[in-house]
Design a binder for these strands. Structure first.
Lengths: 249, 249
DNA sequence: CCGCAGCAAAGTGAATACAATTCAATCCGA
DNA sequence: TCGGATTGAATTGTATTCACTTTGCTGCGG
């Protein structure tokens, strides 16, 4: 017993938001993975983490199992967990998968209809985006604001699909490094304008109760983000040969 | 210590196949959920399971977390795990999601190409299916055989997509009760014949390196299984009003 | 110098003990 | 009689300990 007091909560992770230590540790380890504190392919040492986070191995193991379920870690019996590697091809694939899934979500939303609250949020996101884009160029911090607007649009539509499994799968796609919807890969004003126009058209299709059109538009929308990513990577001279044939599509 | 001997492996679950107890327990609990031994919506008691399976709570908790990651269980902090309920609408949705995902898998396979081994397995499944269907009607046990043939075709194609995340998501869809590809919902000879013809066409599209065609065909193929399920449920007089508008697809 | 057997250290797996929370029944008080 | 606080049993969360597996090193033999 290293400590005399019964249980002084080690809430070191910041504002004590998580319900219990396992969840808190899960968030901390996930962040460490996503921001590269622990590098890809690296093997995770349970005792090391438990010492760093000042908890026992139990919540650490719980967190690792949860993160393995999210697809961020690999597990091998008697050998523990390793950080899964995401080659560029896997990242590009994740966009394709997400495009397909969000397309289905848009179709479901069009079939099932939106609640008044959902309509309000989406329309607000459309208006806010219009206003932000009206000036013709971005000021400092505008992109961060648009990230939020974009997230609101997609999250609300996803909720309107009323299917939990679908939501969880898309959430997993978002956790693939660089694949999050909060990462606006196109920083050009013209590209963001185009993406925002997509939002308008998707919303129109959903309100017109045209499921098939909503699906196709959403698919193309997300797929377009992928293409922008691939294009920008190529322009930056990064190894683009990893990307498979459909990259230009 | 309830036992004098150091560790007499409780391998009660059958042939000791799993690498460790957590994995073994995971399989046992999953089976219990899927075959209805524990009913949907039920709250899971950790100590009860640990006594039944004659292990400690530790591997039971590990198993529950893993199954929550698979989407079979819900977790609430300080309240434990409950068996997730799958209303008919969720099952139908799972077919739509799977159709979309397997469509992407077929496209990837067409883009990336098949290995010699994969071609061999698929061609064998096609030939075996042709032979089985040639007689014009099913004998006892034929459907079980076709279940295996069908599984080989889909699993091999999924492997050829060379994307782990995609494979895991489809696997999750399969774990939704009644949604497994091993469940041939159409028991009519004519319907199975039609499904098997789909397999031929999908394979042709992949070998012809026509990704888009492969995707559309696979999507329609899986979606057709959903329609058959819905139709048979309606004919059996089950409450079909739960199914949403796209049922007739 | 290379290879392999054996041993020691490190790490994971499982069980048990303990803390904290939830939940239900009960006991008051209005 | 109803509502709410209280208490205790049941259940989950965390820590610790022990058992087993893996792994890398060391030393012996070829």
């Amino acid at each position: 017993m290293p400590d005399s007091s019964p249980l002084p909560p080690p809430e070191a992770g910041g504002p004590g938001r998580a319900a219990n230590r396992s969840l808190s540790v899960t968030d901390q380890i996930r962040d460490a993975i996503l921001d590269g504190t622990v590098s890809a392919g690296e093997r995770i040492n349970e005792v090391r983490f438990s010492k760093t986070l000042e908890v026992s191995r139990t919540p650490v193991r719980a967190a690792l199992q949860a993160l393995a379920g999210e697809g961020l870690l690999d597990y091998a019996p008697n050998r523990g967990f390793t950080v899964r590697e995401f080659p560029l091809s896997a990242i590009v694939d994740a966009y394709e998968i997400r495009a397909s899934l969000e397309g289905v979500a848009a179709r479901f939303a069009a079939e099932r209809g939106l609640s008044a609250e959902e309509r309000a949020i989406i329309e607000e996101s459309l208006v806010a985006g219009d206003k932000l884009l009206a000036r013709g160029e971005f000021a400092e911090g505008d992109l961060t604001i648009y990230r939020g607007i974009n997230g609101d649009f997609h999250d609300t539509l996803l909720g309107a699909a009323r299917n939990r499994m679908l939501a969880e799968m898309i959430r997993i796609c978002h956790h693939v490094p660089m694949s999050s919807s909060r990462n606006i890969v196109a920083f050009e004003h013209r590209d963001v304008r185009r993406r925002h126009d997509d939002h308008h058209r998707i919303y129109d299709a959903i309100m017109a109760r045209e499921p098939w059109r909503a699906e196709v538009l959403m698919r193309e929308h997300v797929s377009g983000v992928k293409s922008s990513l691939v294009k920008s990577l190529i322009e930056r001279g990064e190894q683009a040969d990893i990307v498979n044939g459909s990259a230009a599509g």
